[in-house]
């Protein structure tokens, strides 16, 4: 075992030496806690475990990175936990949009993402707008025309009211004046079943999930929720290309540290995740899940989060959600 570790450590020493000299270098001294707001098996959990496995296999960290589940209340259990670990350089978390949204809509959720130490944005997840394969709607435009003809009759399945599915619907309804219903289901399985059973007419779904149904001839994609067309679906227009000029709503995942992290500590983690995101293992994962793997560094992340929060606040207000902050 010792033999196999040594080259890794040596490489690591080189890497550390190669980083431009800073006032103080940070080096973790005990196990790094990687906090996840979902339970075991949730999308976020799988994502974080994939990352920690890569960091482990490629020996990107001198200590172990252990995934810690803090499910409950959207992101609030996890962000409360992060707040309790203020100034601890060994605690990081995996964030998604919900970390920005919860403090906006819940009075009791007091810990804002920007008040912690944002480290990097790792991926943006595109999505597909799909209908049943035998549906009469061949384009998003046809669906919206039908919705205009009979307001409130057509249905769209999705998650909670704060989810991207509903945000996109609200934006489209405002833009076009059409109206259709949004049916909330807690689990992805139920959303899929509702469309497969014909109980709703349309849904927004991850490309990896939808891809199989499309290949099996059950679903048809009519638009994609993405800034640019996905490599796997070159013929499907984005919502904007389909003629609906609404803002893009990216679904992001990234890493944030506990509040009060020094710049050197943030730089250490930024570097670690940058290296992880360049490994073949990660590239394969990103490709198979059809994600957009553009890496955003800490210095660009904070302004992005601030402006994105403002966008989300407007969208939620328009969606009729009570915004408290």
């Amino acid at each position: 075992m010792i033999g196999s570790w040594t080259p890794g450590l040596a490489a690591l020493a080189l890497v550390i030496a190669a980083v431009p000299a800073q006032a103080q270098q940070f080096k973790p001294t005990r196990t790094i806690e990687f906090v996840v707001h979902g339970g075991p098996g949730s999308g976020n959990d799988v994502f974080a475990r994939q990352l920690s496995t890569i960091i482990d296999q490629e020996k990107l960290s001198p200590v172990r990175v252990q995934v810690v589940n803090k499910p409950g209340g959207g992101s609030t259990s996890a962000s409360n936990y992060m707040a309790s670990k203020k100034n601890d350089p060994h605690v990081i978390a995996c964030f998604t949009n919900i970390w920005l949204i919860d403090p906006l809509v819940q009075q009791a959720a007091v810990n804002r993402l920007q008040d912690m130490s944002p480290i990097a944005r790792l991926v943006v997840e595109p999505a597909l707008v799909v209908v049943l394969a035998d549906s009469p709607y061949k384009t998003l435009g046809q669906f919206i025309d039908a919705a205009k003809a009979s307001p409130g009759k057509l249905r769209w399945s999705g998650g909670s009211i704060m989810s991207r599915e509903n945000t996109v619907r609200q934006l489209l309804m405002q833009k076009t004046g059409a109206r259709w219903q949004f049916i909330s289901f807690p689990s992805g399985g139920e959303r899929l079943a509702a469309l497969l059973g014909g109980h709703v007419e349309m849904m927004i779904v991850d490309p990896s999930e939808a891809g199989e149904q499309i290949r099996a001839g059950k679903f048809r994609a009519i638009a994609q929720v993405s800034a640019r067309r996905l490599p796997g679906f070159p013929d499907i227009p984005t919502i904007q290309e389909a003629g609906f000029d609404i803002p893009d709503v990216p679904q992001m995942r990234g890493v944030v540290g506990a509040a009060g992290m020094s710049d050197a500590t943030v730089a250490f983690y930024e570097d670690m995740f940058l290296k992880a995101s360049q490994t073949p293992l990660w590239k394969k994962f990103v490709e198979e899940s059809q994600l957009d793997g553009e890496f955003v560094r800490a210095k660009d992340l904070k302004p992005f989060l601030n402006s994105f929060e403002a966008t989300l606040r407007d969208i939620l207000k328009d969606a009729g959600v009570k915004v408290v902050r």
Binding site: P71, G72, G73, G74, T76, S77, N80, D102, V105, Q106, Q107, A108, A109, V110, G159, S160, I161, M162, S184, P186, V321, K322
Partner: peptide, 18 residues
Amino acid sequence: LFSAQARFIFGQSELLGG
């Protein structure tokens, strides 16, 4: 789930998830 309304949580953020 449908409205993001917090119900009967007595101001405890731990109860937001039920």
